[in-house]
Design a protein around this nucleic acid. Structure first.
Lengths: 150, 150
DNA sequence: CTAAATAGTTAAGCAGGCTAAATTATATAG
DNA sequence: CTATATAATTTAGCCTGCTTAACTATTTAG
């Protein structure tokens, strides 16, 4: 397990800092918005997938379709998702985010990132450019990773 | 709310990818290890702080000391933390991570990062160096941010 | 048309995580 | 010494999130 790649080592170090800074804000956001981890995971998944069925979403999180159905019912009541019948196969429901769902998700992202603004202020223009270049590379490659995020 | 700093914009983009990739693994890790978000947040906090009291840890997460006490009892039973009496003020308990606690935390970090190994493989040596330089800058600045993570 | 498979929902029950309130033990102020 | 404040725990109760099992509706295979 000795990963000697200094790139990976540095990344782990950064991730450690990142998690420590943002995990707590994330927990607070979840509590205040009344969303469970499963709900947040579902909203995230929907924001990428666009649309999914009840069982799909349950599988994605590793829970039964019954649990998924109950959780989605709560999200419908909170008006964060829309649940409509698939006109082609009327057994399945099509779940999509509402506008409000998108907004809540954005809030959650911003909640975890306040400290990054502070960090940005300590950076020179040169440094920002360097970091932006680095991030752009990673974003590109991550997008090409042929995403079976499952 | 129009944040025009391209650095911040890029960072948000990266964070979005990062969250989408790792949130699900994080949820699975939590379920499989039988740890709640509060527990994981507590372990994280202890790994940085080293030592804390019951009420401190509760405050950190925004729950009552009763809730904190109950959660810590479970962590003690799982042998992830050590709870000893403060010899100076015998009302307070000193909570620290056990070796096992550190290990579980590391697992959690690695669980969320498998895909980064894949990403690393798509990078040239040049690119890795560039990204490492960028991360090193951010790590440094983050550490200097005079940490009131609260 | 009938039988089997699939998608989703509902119901009952259990464990976890939280709260408020009461309790115990210790420390501090007057 | 006494009264008050503080740290932690225990208890009772509530709500959530999950499971399994039963049920409904629809599609697909023969």
């Amino acid at each position: 397990m000795s990963n000697t790649d200094p790139f990976i080592a540095t990344f782990q170090q950064w991730q450690d800092i990142f998690m420590h800074r943002s995990l707590r804000k994330f927990i607070h956001f979840a509590r205040e918005s009344g969303l469970s981890m499963s709900m947040i995971g579902t909203l995230f998944h929907l924001s990428k997938k666009g649309c999914a069925g009840v069982t799909d979403l349950g599988d994605h999180l590793g829970v039964t379709s019954a649990a998924s159905s109950q959780m989605l019912e709560r999200l419908v009541q909170q008006e964060l998702i829309l649940r409509t019948e698939d006109p082609i196969d009327r057994r399945v429901k099509q779940i999509v985010l509402t506008e409000k769902g998108h907004q809540v998700l954005d809030e959650g992202i911003r909640a975890r990132q306040g400290w990054l603004d502070d960090l940005a202020e300590t950076l020179s223009l040169e440094e920002k450019k360097l970091i932006k270049r680095a991030l752009d590379i990673m974003i590109n490659r991550a997008n090409q990773l042929e995403g079976p995020i499952e």
